[in-house]
Amino acid sequence: MRLLGFLARRGFQSVFVLLGLSILIFIIARVLPGDRARTALGARAPQWVVDRLREDLHLAQPLVAQYGYWLGDALQGDLGISLVTRRAVTDDIRDFLPASLELVLFSGLITAVGGIGLGILSARHKDTWVDNIIRVFSYMGVVIPSFVAAILLLLLFGLILDWFPSIGRLSEGVPRPPKITGFYTVDSLLAGQFATTWDALKHLVLPAVALALGSLSQEARITRSTMSDNLSKDYIAAGRALGVPERLVTGRFLLKASLIPTVSIFGLDFAATLSNAFLVELIFVWPGISRYGVNAMLRKDLNAISAVILILGITFIIVNILVDLGVGALDPRIRLRGARSD
């Protein structure tokens, strides 16, 4: 019940966030110099065609009215036509977003498992060689930008060792799975094409690892420091003093108390990954939304830019809600405070 209330409240708040975001997007797209109709049609289009388009786009009307039309269309799922692909922006997104989401989710999985795992390992073996290696590794992970990691991984594992395919989502000749979720791994599993699943997974590894490296290192560092801080807390000593077995004291009891900061940072990092993915997508020729967005920016493809920003905004909102849920599930102090303010 409390959960439903929380979701309803956050959903309601999100509407306003999105509304604000839409106004921002709309204004940014309109304050840019130049005639949008002319830009869209090109210099050689006859004037009457341009005038027609101006009318269609309601460009002569006041900005507020224009926003009304734009919002109405957007709510109906019409975000306009992309100048670059000459297709409906929503169709583009339907094609490109799943590729990015699959990549980002997979890299999120690597971040969570690897980061928390290394953090625990590091804290357990604090100040030993294990800890030192992990710390050096995570310092490097934090400072090396994901595109450098991407290139290094591509060269080493893609070209020199040739363990993983280096570009695209599938190898040539591998049948594409039918489109259900847009995630090749999931769709091929659903369709029973296990060879395709394997191939898609192999294609995911390098870009996902490249993308995960930074936040993974950050998670490992945070998990380590929180755990070793908490290890000197009285409740750990008290658990031991009362005969609670060590595996529970430093497992269950320490872990739950220590993962709270990790989860919040993970959420922030995860949402940012989607927008930071473009260089990695570029390097691995990954047909994702991030690359699409950057291309749109370079070409002043306003409809596409607006759509991508909107998608990123929505992702941030969803991830934030999930993180708050996760942190609330771990930490009664936050959960109960939330309930009290109802």
């Binding site: 658990g239 930490d331 009664p332 102090r333």
Partner: peptide
């Protein structure tokens, strides 16, 4: 550690100075 775990709790147990710090806040 096995012998120690028999002493802790059933042999000797302890009440800590600050009860707030001695209880795990998330359980």
């Amino acid at each position: 550690s096995a012998e120690l775990s028999k002493v802790r709790g059933r042999g000797i147990s302890m009440i800590f100075q600050d009860p707030t710090a001695a209880l795990n806040p998330v359980f």
